[in-house]
Design a protein around this nucleic acid. Structure first.
Lengths: 335, 335
DNA sequence: CTGAAAGCGCTAACAT
DNA sequence: ATGTTAGCGCTTTCAG
């Protein structure tokens, strides 16, 4: 049998489609009995609304668009999971796109989401996103958005981030206090907030400790495991190797870990290693990786709640807020 | 400025909306010049089609729905990533739902996707899915679907799986040949294909080897890390402990690994351990985990291609096919 | 409390 | 090669 529409229900009950629509939405004008009748028939016929027809009228769907660099990374899959959980509980579905760290694809993803009339958008920027001009479509189309984790200084929307600066600073101070004096930083992109802020934390820790920063020890890499591998090779080729490495995130730390292991370099005795994220894998490898805990799921759910709040009250004024969640230094065996 | 519609373009060029629509879709009847004009104006005005309006007419979207047990699990996030890649390249977007291993939520997810008029659905079943009655909506609404990885014996749609039976059998034969004589199996759900087939492979390996199966060594657990932890505790409490454990998948193997480590049991000397999936983590922990390689990304992309093929040719007869991808035994240090 | 009617933006017969 | 018209299923004024 074909799809059941509101008309079918109306015909069965000798009502008008508008009454059925109202009954289905629990409109106060409709009598108890009519509502019950409609609900019953709807159930019997296995009716469900056509989101296209509804969306065409209402100008938006109950879908939340998500753009992340890579679905596979534990941080992002956890964040997506947190988003989905909230979205599901509030009757939203999620549409997921991955930019593959490519800002042009990010722009295309965004257009696609807007064309799909998503109710709002959750974004974590790609590492190649130098400016955020391609997000202007959010304003012109009045699509609410919340940026999470990887954001950009020009972002005017609400954001959910962690205190990357202090998280990194605390970690690097810990390393300095432990006696490491030649700490390399394998950095991410410096357009993207987390890359910039963690680097700033690294520098500020040195400042506060009173140790000059050796610029040569700052390697511009990226956010992926492969970037860590490459950076590790660069570092190992240096005449004077660092005695510790702070990676911008755990995937990069894992990349470094793999190369160090391959080269039979003992962690932390020869070179200490620390990351940022606290991916599950970091606790399980040996030595376990000292890192900074980032509540990925919570970041996702917080961003989702913020966005849905805005979606549900489109008229209300929502000044952009920045929610900064706490990080926690996780000391393990690698540093 | 508000959203640009096809009418706006039509007005600007003194054409009818239908001509514009046809020009936009490169209809052969439309003259080169008109097409160019339309395309130009469309670009200038930053036009993009309203997928609701289009979908309402065409009865479907260019969105592919995905239902997986948990987004976070590496296997599924990899599969989703593979799906997204193919979908993106063919102009589809993906809508992702997680059942959280709960068949009722799976049913709700499915309804939601159908209500969203997805062009097709890709499903990997939850571990609590005993029967697939709730998927009948796919038939009644004529939504094409492809099941991947976790499927069910009653599924009549196309499927993309690996040869779980032989993958498991090969692994268990390897263990038997290596001298293990008391191999426990921490099993998944036996309604779900991968659980059933891997168990069958485990049993058949014993049969072929000529060693009776000790039923007490088969623990019905689940597919999650926590299930592995619980099963490990059960196994360790046995009067006669097994000398090897074959976990239904790597997350479960990791759960067991953690408990064995906690209990200071040496792997593989006291108890050997093997999994199934080849999650990245399995190669990195020590001892590294012997497992069966499952091409997660490829499973996803294969399923996506199969589905899109069907979506693109709705009239063509597509008998359900089952694509069985190869597994590979990965021998490492844990067994 | 319910109905009639219009229209969201697009597509596809059916004209011309 | 282009225009006219109708309608997808739903919501929402406006009427009663």
């Amino acid at each position: 049998m074909a799809r059941v529409t509101i008309k079918d229900i109306a015909r069965k009950l000798a009502l008008s489609p508008s009454t059925v629509s109202r009954a289905l939405h629990d409109h106060p004008d409709i009598s108890r009995k009519t509502k019950d009748d409609v609900l019953n028939i709807a159930r019997n016929l296995d009716y469900f609304p056509d989101t296209f027809a509804r969306g065409l009228r209402k100008k938006h769907s109950s879908t939340i668009g998500i753009i992340v660099p890579e679905i596979r990374h534990d941080f992002f899959s956890s964040a997506i999971s947190g988003i989905e959980e909230i979205a599901y509980s509030k009757g939203f579905t999620i549409m997921v796109c991955q930019s593959n760290e490519d800002w042009q694809r990010e722009a295309l993803n965004l257009r696609s989401l807007v064309a799909n009339r998503v109710a709002g958008v959750l974004v974590s920027l790609s590492q190649t996103t130098q400016n955020i001009d391609h997000f202007s479509i959010l304003d012109s189309q009045k699509v609410p958005a919340v940026f999470f984790d990887r954001t950009h200084k020009d972002v005017k929307h609400s954001q959910v981030i962690v205190d990357d600066f202090n998280g990194a600073k605390e970690l690097v101070l810990y390393l300095l206090n432990k006696g490491y004096r030649s700490i390399a930083h394998v950095a991410g992109s410096d357009c993207v907030s987390v890359g910039r802020d963690r680097l700033a934390g690294y520098i500020d820790a040195h400042l506060e400790f009173g140790l000059p920063v050796d610029e040569r020890l700052i390697i511009s890499a990226g956010f992926r495991e492969i970037d860590g591998r490459n950076a590790a090779k660069t570092l190992l080729a240096m005449p004077k190797r660092p005695d510790a490495i702070f990676a911008v995130n755990d995937p990069v730390a894992i990349g470094i870990y793999i190369v160090l292991k391959e080269e039979k370099i003992v962690i932390p005795d020869e070179i200490a290693l620390a990351g940022f994220c606290n991916n599950p894998i970091s606790a399980l490898i040996e030595p376990s990786i000292t890192t900074v805990q980032q509540p990925a799921r919570l970041i996702g759910s917080t961003a989702a709640n913020l966005l849905i709040e805005r979606i549900l009250h489109p008229d209300k004024e929502y000044p952009a807020v920045t929610k900064t969640l706490k990080t926690e230094l996780i000391i393990r065996n690698s540093a």
